[in-house]
Amino acid sequence: MKNNNLKFKINFYFFAIVFSFLFFVFCLNANAASLSLVSSVSEIGIGQQFQVDLMLDAQGQDINAVEGRITFPNNLTAIENVNDGNSIINFWAKNPVYSKNSDVVFSGVIPGGFQGVLSPYYKGGKPGKILSLIFQSKNEGSGIIAIKDAKVLLNDGKGTEAELQISNFQFLISNQIPIFEFPTASVKDTRPPELFTPIIARDSNVFNGEWFLVFMTEDKESGVGHYEIAEKSGSLKQNYSELPWQTAESPYLLKDQKLASYIYVRVIDRANNERITVLPPQNVRPWYKKYLIFVILITGATFLYLIWRIVWTKLCATKYSSTL
């Protein structure tokens, strides 16, 4: 009887502790921000393209920075594209570059913080998209696209790390599953990236204090592909295809440190729409510093003097001969 009572007590305390722990964990996680990989499909045919979105749910917290790494089984799938169109991230500390078989590393910032996406069509805030990954399935099998080394930071001025829950994406690739038309392929982005204004700046801590250019814009549909820059002195060029374009990233060290050239900045989105912004020369030389003008004036004056000398000689000769 005594043993039974003791057994009951042990069982009771065990369940009480386990129940309390589970309740505590559940409650704690209810306030944790979450990073999730979501897709409209989980069963995929071979050779099928599919999209997986990385979503941030702030869960009432104020998040202003996020980073992590997305891994995938490269024997089963390959990455076709990474799209940051319509992302809640305003600046990428590390652009989410990709290659077919390697992890996608991302690190971005939201100035002012993120608490959820508001809309007139629902109450409260919903999760926001960080980026989309387009995969192509290669071989049969099941696998997981996973978020690793993830971190989200609070918008508290200290960079405090927030509690984080991770939700990975599990999929099955089979030749039994019919291939369907990839939905995003039918959506055509015809709008150029957003308007932007590059800024010329100089700071002793960057490029040894030389002039550099900073620029950033967004494309809400297909996302920004890349930027190109051309510097050209002389008059403003109307035919942009003749310019010496070079792929560039911000901050960009300017070649013309005298700032006497036009700076052309071209942004091209992932659907090949482009927008070009032109900055006029900051230091236009005054007319008296344009040495070509002096060369022309001196040449012209010399030429006129020579003509005058020839004409005068001829006139004098004519006058002299007529006097004789």
Binding site: A93, P111, G112, G113, N155, D156, K158, G159
Partner: peptide, 14 residues
């Protein structure tokens, strides 16, 4: 690192 970006994002003025 990311913490420096987070601090800057908090003091952002645009």
């Amino acid at each position: 690192n990311l913490v420096d970006f987070s601090i800057m994002a908090y003091y952002w003025t645009g």
